[in-house]
């Protein structure tokens, strides 16, 4: 896990300021979606080796949810973007 995260709003900050929520690639299904879709969304998680997208909540900073793309093996952080911006992007 990274020691430092470059928050797009606050700059380089230590990881202790963040809370990791988990997989940021999940998309919340419509309430009318199938049970299977909801089951996957709520309960099923991959445990990737390598690149992964995670939501990091900057609790001790701007309180924004960030999408952190990082490598679970090398711990390299490839990108950090604001979660709302990323969510709008997905919707587009």
């Amino acid at each position: 896990m990274a020691s430092l995260i470059t928050c797009p709003h606050c700059g380089v900050r230590p990881k202790e300021e963040f809370a990791v929520r988990g997989d940021a690639s999940l998309i919340r299904p419509a309430s009318s979606a199938s049970d299977a879709a909801w089951h996957d969304y709520v309960y099923v998680r991959v445990n990737p080796r390598g690149r992964t997208l995670e939501h990091w909540h900057h609790v001790a900073g701007c309180r924004r949810f960030l999408v952190v793309e990082r490598d679970t093996v090398t711990h390299e952080v490839y990108s950090v973007v604001d979660g709302a911006a990323a969510a709008r992007e997905v919707r587009r």
Binding site: R21, A24, R28, H55, H57, R63, R64, F65, D82, G83, A84, A85, A87, R88
Partner: peptide, 10 residues
Amino acid sequence: DYCAQVLWPD
């Protein structure tokens, strides 16, 4: 925060 930013950012 999560709901407003990630689920329903609009």
